[in-house]
Design a protein around this nucleic acid. Sequence first.
DNA 1: AAGACACGGTTGACGCGTCAACCATAACGC
DNA 2: GCGTTATGGTTGACGCGTCAACCGTGTCTT
Lengths: 170, 170
Amino acid sequence: MATNATRAGALSAREERAWDGYRRMQSLLSSQLNRQLIQETGLSDADYAILSALLAAPGHRLRGLALRCEVQWEKSRLSHHLGRMQARGLVLREDCVEDSRGAVFQLTEAGREAVEAATDDRVAAVRTYLLDLLTPEQLDALTEISGAVLARLAQDDPHRRAVAELARGV
Amino acid sequence: MATNATRAGALSAREERAWDGYRRMQSLLSSQLNRQLIQETGLSDADYAILSALLAAPGHRLRGLALRCEVQWEKSRLSHHLGRMQARGLVLREDCVEDSRGAVFQLTEAGREAVEAATDDRVAAVRTYLLDLLTPEQLDALTEISGAVLARLAQDDPHRRAVAELARGV
DNA sequence: AAGACACGGTTGACGCGTCAACCATAACGC
DNA sequence: GCGTTATGGTTGACGCGTCAACCGTGTCTT
């Protein structure tokens, strides 16, 4: 045990407040937004992410890999979810011509209608429970905070595979 | 359709950045923290939440309801999860004396050791991927933001049941 | 050309979270 | 006391997310 930055001690009061607040907010906010979207539109957060990525794409179609970059999911998650969405008629799977291993996913008409119908609800909810509650300064602060965290996460990510390889003995 | 605050239009660039950043951060950060905790300690985020709530309680035991308030979960989720944790020997279920409907959950010795062992890792990870990346001002901003959002959510919550009742026709 | 390896994507198993239905007990109204 | 309703908690079914194993195809090395 005792990995990297172990003995840094407990959190200061300031840190404690920030972490505790963030933790609670993220858990309640995301479940609220997801629940609300589902019961107003029948689409989950996950559905919405996929569908709006496809909607934004030229021809409403995207290669599997491109979609994966867009939503940042594990490939098996994407595969499972697209399978279900296909069964629901929201999305269509075709084989890829340039690379016969690949797949291309296309928004169906039903899918297009579903996202478009959902967009207003989604935006309204995000305003109600987040954006409208914040001052412009707080909006910017949130942007900066996310930026810092995402940069830190990205910094680890490319290494991850290499590190795993090394640890596994090369 | 056209529920409450529908036609507020799309987001401004500032709002868009903030929302997009937040969305990405919350998704990647929570999966990173959860994954890391699991593989370093064998405890999931959910396990950790329960266990540390119990650890903080007098006698390391808590009534089901109290635990539910603490972690803010749906009662069925709590029940399912405590069932699994009991099977893993982390927690012990007893009948409640004051209220024979109720249940009391007690940290086992194994459970106590598990949380205590996990605490350092957890704190270190939270520092690494969040707290250490932020200035004191950003910490405070995060606290304020969460406060605003949580207040808004709380404002809806008490109503929710009443509203549901009414809608269901009384 | 042949083998090794990387890559895009799928599959199956399993634990998790949600919903709705349920059970037993407690509290309330009369 | 008796029926009604509310409450604490459990259960089962179902869709979701993750992991590890896998399959077929492309790519690189020689």
